[in-house]
Design a protein around this nucleic acid. Structure first.
Lengths: 231, 231
DNA sequence: ACAAAAGTGTTGGAGATACACCCATGA
DNA sequence: TCATGGGTGTATCTCCAACACTTTTGT
């Protein structure tokens, strides 16, 4: 019989949100015990321990729902983080002591990400989350554990996916203008794109179909509307 | 205090080997108890449980060494597999009963891959491996657990990396011909490549530098030799 | 001389990049 | 009439794919 060790396994979810203008990340504020209130708010991405005999994808969906009430979101696994010290910084220990039987046990985490339209989802804090907030990507505070690192790695993956045009349109309203798509892509890639070239490449896609409608109520030339038909 | 569950965590290593002609995968033959000898040999990729407070990368290196004596190989994490039933098939249970205290416990595994030159490494079975063998990629037998699936996923990743030219040259002898590189690429991508086009694209790389030397001892026109200088 | 692999250039098409002005609307 | 973002075309370049014959060596 070998020696062996069971280990705490968690999943963490990086939920990117698009508000039509900026790329955001969904954070939860973690509840603190009364005696630790003076330490100020503590933010994290939604995540928790995996249960015995629970699949990783199942765990990710369950945990996201428990903490934020979000359901039916396509989550994509991208990396496991297992540095033994990832959970042992002082800033994390006082919180873990409230919620875990073995606060300084080794925890490896399997990270997932997704990208959603902020106006199509409605996160509500629950369980040990006291609050949920969207924070702009360029404005993320210091987070619990190694969550800042996890978000950065998730963004790299998202950018790779977008460059292959394999994600993005699901995020737009039913009817949208080409400029809206371009804004989305620019926010994800964090760089400007040439308007004419971008429009050429989008118009070539068969999944984006033009409508006989225009924007209304804008204070400038109204743009043509398009819709997305998944292939 | 939340309920929580500790879980067995393992790492598994897909070691691709290049023999100058074909792409191989390193398998171990797992030892069986005497009473199970009649069941015949049982093959798997090298893998075992992670220890408490051990990083994932550290675990991967340790376990690969324990089972095959291979050391100093660059291992790259690519995916975590956590299907609760991945370890519960009948074929796996009789083996697990010999080596694990809780043979039907849920095990999630974090998978790594690497690509090595077969003539530069020398795997030797050790620990619960009774044997190590290189098997051609197209010829892999039924393996323990979900290891066939893991190998297939690893190959996809390897192919993606190679198409971005981000791996491969480390695998060639110190001095090599362009044809040798092409053979390597064809084996990994599992398809033929145009000789002239391939040579054009390689010669454009600054990391591949031509030498004033030729092959010797070949029974045909000797090729020019090149060397790889990592940037 | 023959067998075996090395070596070599051109063309056509597709896709990416760079670039500047007029248009429709509401205020 | 002005401010605002919508909308449009061309020239150039780079990259990729397709394709066949001559050269050098050992036997």
């Amino acid at each position: 019989m070998n020696n062996y060790a069971k280990i705490n396994v968690s999943v963490d979810c990086v939920i990117f949100g698009w508000d039509g203008e900026h790329l955001n990340v969904l954070l939860i504020e973690q509840k603190r015990a009364k005696k630790n209130k003076h330490l100020g708010p503590r933010y994290a991405i939604p995540g928790d321990l995996v249960l015995e005999n629970e699949g990783l994808d199942d765990a990710a969906n369950r945990i996201l729902k428990e903490l934020t009430k979000l359901e039916g979101i396509y989550l994509r696994q991208f990396e496991a983080f297992g540095n033994p010290s990832r959970v042992k910084e002082l800033k994390d220990q006082d919180w873990l002591k409230e919620y875990r039987e073995e606060p300084d046990a080794h925890v490896i985490t399997v990270a997932y990400f997704s990208l959603v339209r902020m106006d199509m989802v409605n996160p509500e804090a629950s369980s040990f989350a006291s609050n949920t907030i969207w924070v702009e990507m360029h404005n993320i505070p210091d987070l619990a554990f190694d969550h800042n690192l996890i978000i950065n790695k998730a963004l790299l993956r998202l950018q790779q996916n977008v460059e292959q045009k394999s994600i993005g349109f699901e995020l737009l309203p039913e009817k949208f203008t080409l400029t809206q798509i371009q804004n989305l892509y620019e926010a994800i890639l964090d760089k400007g794109l040439d308007k004419r070239n971008f429009r050429k490449s989008i118009k070539k896609l068969e999944t984006i179909i033009p409508l006989n409608e225009k924007q209304v109520g804008v204070t400038h030339k109204p743009g043509q509307l398009f819709e997305y038909k998944p292939s």
